[in-house]
Design a protein around this nucleic acid. Structure first.
Lengths: 340, 340
DNA sequence: CTGAAAGCGCTTACAG
DNA sequence: CTGAAAGCGCTTACAG
């Protein structure tokens, strides 16, 4: 026997009051006798009352959409976004595309239902299946740290990748290194990877150190890719004395390769990473790395979406937060050259 | 000039059609001439139409609430929960209490508004300010990996902490270690810490190895606490040959202490962690650890809440997923004792 | 394919 | 403090 739908009328009848009175209790209207209120509250609970509809305004939700939920820095983003959303009384809905269209359809449905206040496409590659349908949404959408060329009309928030990579390379050059290798995150596409490679090159050029293409390795943003690339570099006939890795994860792969090859960090080999994940602090020795203000990027993304949702104008459609070199214990002057 | 509220009537008038027709377009009813539909869609967009209310059913949201968003394993939880929620067409709202009551109030408001399908209290300590108000909610609430004694009437999902700690200790004993130290996560309260300590003791007892209280150190679940405790153990007049750390983070602290003291892992000192965070794989040497099925715990938590929301009954109010020892490269037989 | 009419669940003045 | 009445925004048959 599937019970009748429980509406305000059900409760009103059970309580022997009118529908408006029940409505007042639900809405926290003070003008209800305490005894009445208590009785109605008990009945609402007992009948398991659930409103049929919800005011769209109180349903404020911002969706953050990742390709996958799989990397540590996402938690930093989320912490920043959550803090801002909580202050604004808006919920943060986390979802993943997972190669499918389910996430997209879900977002679309919710947006049409007035449920989404806005959306943040994070770490989105250019071919995100979301792009073609964005225009249908009547809610603000921005990109956060877009991996590839994002739809140009979307506001975006990123980090100063070029500047950070340059600072990292300059740090190594200042220590006296002349054979500085780089391991990138991906050969082609990714914007951040390109910018970091260019920053590395700029620093070399400024220092008058000729670029050696054999010291540039292209991997993925993965631990294993770091191991592979670092082994190749260590086995190089004229090996580098320092490696700038395009991410902390790759840098940790370099650590492992060095351990397996009996190479000591930083005595034999200096290593710099990129991101400043918590894991960078936990490495032995602690990793010198370029800090991306991931939490702050999340906060800014959240604020930006809320600003747009309030139909206020943005200071700029493209915001880039600065990066900062954090010197820890994985970098040192190069070893004295062995006698030939 | 604050524009009039945009309602279906606004759009209907602008399009020269009736309100029901606009409603049909919004609801994806196929019985609308294409030309009409396109015209109405354009007008909806142009006027920035947003529904005033939302069907509560389509607003399905499950809230996961953490004390703070700050540890890597939360992302594993979230990945599992998100996958299940997406399949169910329910949104996952992530929030943090941050010592305040804002998160609680927010949840309450949404629950009353019919917006929360359920809630997952994750890693909650016993004194969560949420507990006193849980009864007011007409939605299912469960705890995930409760840190301390959670309100007993709430269903809970956890991991087999005792069993995992026992397996870790047995592994070290089987390698030949007799001086096996333990670094716990917290002196008192936390349930998981207590269970892990008891598992360690059980294994020692079974092997007939007497417990040495000076080999048990109480810290926090922090990297720094691991360093401090490990240094004390290494400096012990009769130091341990193996350390079982109550979390991977503590274990990484042990790595750093060992590096600073010139102690080699695993040649001089074996280390086992607990959690199997991604960072355990990235450690050098890769960390032997007890794997908690964090993602699977998230999935189960999500399924459990949805089951309860569907008013179906639970197989059991308390579910514990098994843990598994993952042997990597940080454990080996103890060094041969030095000649006195 | 579309609209006039009825209806739904809830809220908002207004009156007492 | 409470209810009868009107109203709101939207949806649901029903008729053509």
């Amino acid at each position: 026997m599937p019970a009748e739908r429980v509406t305000l009328a059900t409760i009103a009848e059970a309580a022997g009051v009118s529908v408006p009175t029940v409505s007042r209790v639900l809405n926290g209207d003070g003008n209800v006798a305490k005894a009445t209120r208590l009785r109605i509250e008990a009945l609402l609970d007992e009948h398991g009352y659930r409103p049929r509809t919800v005011r769209a305004s109180s349903a404020g939700m911002v969706h953050v959409i990742y390709p996958r939920i799989d990397t540590a820095w996402q938690l930093e983003h989320i912490r920043g976004m959550e803090a801002v959303m909580q202050e604004a009384g808006v919920g943060l809905v986390v979802s993943a595309l997972n190669h499918g269209t389910a996430g997209r359809n879900d977002l679309l449905r919710r947006a049409q239902a007035g449920q989404a206040t806005g959306a943040i496409l994070a770490a989105a590659s250019g071919d995100t299946p979301l792009a073609p349908v964005l225009d249908q949404l009547n809610v603000p959408v921005i990109t956060l740290d877009p991996g590839a060329k994002a739809p140009a009309r979307l506001p975006s928030i990123g980090a100063a990748n070029w500047q950070g990579a340059r600072a990292a390379t300059e740090h190594l050059l200042a220590l006296g290194h002349r054979r500085v290798a780089m391991i990138t995150g991906s050969k082609g596409g990714l914007l951040c990877s390109r910018a970091r490679l260019d920053g590395y090159r700029a620093a070399l050029e400024d220092a008058g150190v000729p670029e050696d293409p054999s010291l540039i390795r292209h991997g993925e943003f993965e631990f294993e890719a770091g191991i592979t690339a670092a082994k190749q570099l260590i086995d190089h006939p004229n090996p580098p004395t320092a490696i700038f890795a395009c991410s902390d994860l790759i840098a940790l792969g370099v650590y492992e390769a060095a351990r397996q090859r009996g190479v000591s960090i930083p005595a034999d080999l200096s290593v710099v990473g990129f991101d400043d994940l918590p894991a960078a602090r936990w490495a032995s020795p602690a990793l010198t790395t370029v800090r991306q203000p991931l939490e702050e990027m999340g906060r800014l993304a959240a604020r930006t979406v809320l600003t747009m949702a309030g139909r206020r104008s943005l200071p700029s459609p493209r915001m880039e937060l600065s990066t900062r070199l954090i010197v820890r214990s994985s970098t040192a002057p190069p070893p004295r050259p062995r006698r030939g």
